[in-house]
Amino acid sequence: MVDVVWSATETEAETGLTIASDNIFVKDSLFSEPGLIEHIAQSAAAFAGYGTFARGESPKLGYIGEIKDCIINCLPEVGSELRTHIQLVIEVGSIRLIKAEVRVGEKIAATCQMKIFLKDD
């Protein structure tokens, strides 16, 4: 559930998603809480995937290890364009701690921290 990766560096990335009416996480024309979290997780995956791709490595399997401090301010409507910023806070071994902020226009729809466990081949 990531339409586009607007930008990506070693420490941060920006992704986008337009909420389609047939999105599995849409309920009553609103993009639900699990959808926001899944979008953040897939944005983090795209971010990690970019890194391995840039280094010429094969992408790794990733798992959500922990979701923390998740705050959801609003549920975006169908047709909304999400803009999500992912920041790598720290990487310890094969665990990445990321911070995510999802915006709809100027409004912050959701923020959270996530620990992604990257499985070595």
Binding site: G65, E66, V89, I90, V92, G93, I95, L97, K115, F117
Partner: peptide, 25 residues
């Protein structure tokens, strides 16, 4: 555990400005 260890390393880095390198951990 492995997940909260990440929190400790992040906390040390933010409080003291010191990054505990994986090799040193």
């Amino acid at each position: 555990d492995s997940l909260s260890l990440v929190d400790m390393v992040a906390l040390i880095e933010s409080e003291f400005g010191v990054k505990i390198l994986p090799a040193d951990l």
